[in-house]
């Protein structure tokens, strides 16, 4: 009986190896971008929020001079660009992952044997593309509508690139980590944006760094956003503006170190706690 069944079996006994984690990750980037593009709320929020903020603050405080030779718009552009990076990475990923887990999308990926790395690649790839579009839009509007002079020195754009890239990586892994720790999509949907707003205020997005109380700056220094903002100022403001920072300099070394440390911490937390399903 058993022998007869085995003989007539047409399911292949040996099957080809499943596609690589990278191949599935690539497919997921395409999927994530497509889903992003079809979510009007996400698109408008990610792309329009920084531009609208720049328009409001630029119009209200546009004539104020922050430091000798530096207008408010230049100063604020750095802060809002850093905020944009945090929104498209940390906030977008954190809320989306919690939702996808609750909806059972992740349970399907688990039963398909999807490597967690492929899922992370998909998220990171989507964040890279959406952040690039967002920043391109923001800088174009700043340069054309608000007469902000963008840097011409290639060295500054190199700084811009590594600051943004580290910010994206840190935001993505921390978003993934936070979504797992929080669990419910509802809590993630309210908690993460609320946290992001507080972080913006204490990290000097809206205020000048040296105006913040010392304790507040120290709290902010523990999180990535302050360093992202400071890194952006070092790109868009003249070096003379560095005196306005708490440390009196741009602190590139420390910025890279803190952001890299958060990338590592986030990755370790993800690797140890990531779940496809909510705990039963």
């Amino acid at each position: 009986m058993t022998a007869a069944r085995t003989a007539t079996r047409t399911v292949p006994a040996t099957r080809p190896a499943p596609p690589s984690a990278a191949a599935i990750g690539l497919a997921r980037i395409g999927l994530e971008l497509r889903l992003f593009a079809r979510d009007p709320g996400q698109v408008v929020f990610s792309f329009a929020y920084p531009v609208i903020m720049l328009a409001i603050f630029g119009s209200v405080f546009g004539d104020e001079v922050v430091l000798p030779g530096i207008g408010f718009r230049e100063y604020f552009l750095a802060g809002i660009a850093a905020t944009g990076v945090m929104l498209t990475s940390f906030q977008a990923v954190g809320t989306a992952v919690a939702e996808e887990r609750e909806r059972g999308d992740l349970a399907r990926l688990q039963t398909l044997g999807t490597p967690a790395l492929s899922y992370a690649i998909g998220k990171a790839g989507q964040v890279v593309v959406t952040t690039a579009v967002q920043l391109a839009l923001l800088l174009t509007v700043a340069a054309t509508a608000f007469d902000v002079a963008l840097p011409t020195d290639p060295g500054r754009w190199v700084t811009f690139a590594w600051v943004v890239l580290l910010g994206i990586l840190a935001g993505t892994v921390l978003g993934l980590a936070v979504a797992t720790v929080i669990g419910s999509a509802r809590s993630a949907g309210t908690g993460i944006p609320a946290f992001a707003v507080v972080l913006q205020f204490i990290s000097g997005v809206f205020f000048i760094g040296s105006d913040l109380p010392d304790w507040m700056d120290r709290v902010a220094a523990a999180f990535p956003l302050k360093w992202l903002v400071q890194g952006m100022r070092s790109v868009f403001l003249p070096d003379s503006a560095a005196v306005a920072e708490q440390a009196g300099s741009w602190e590139h070394g420390r910025t890279a170190l803190v952001l890299a440390a958060w990338v590592i911490i986030g990755t370790v937390v993800c690797a140890r706690t990531f779940r496809w399903r909510r705990a039963a």
Partner: peptide, 9 residues
């Protein structure tokens, strides 16, 4: 079409 890419065949 998307999930087809998760399988070998």
């Amino acid at each position: 079409d998307h999930f087809a890419r998760y399988h070998a065949a």
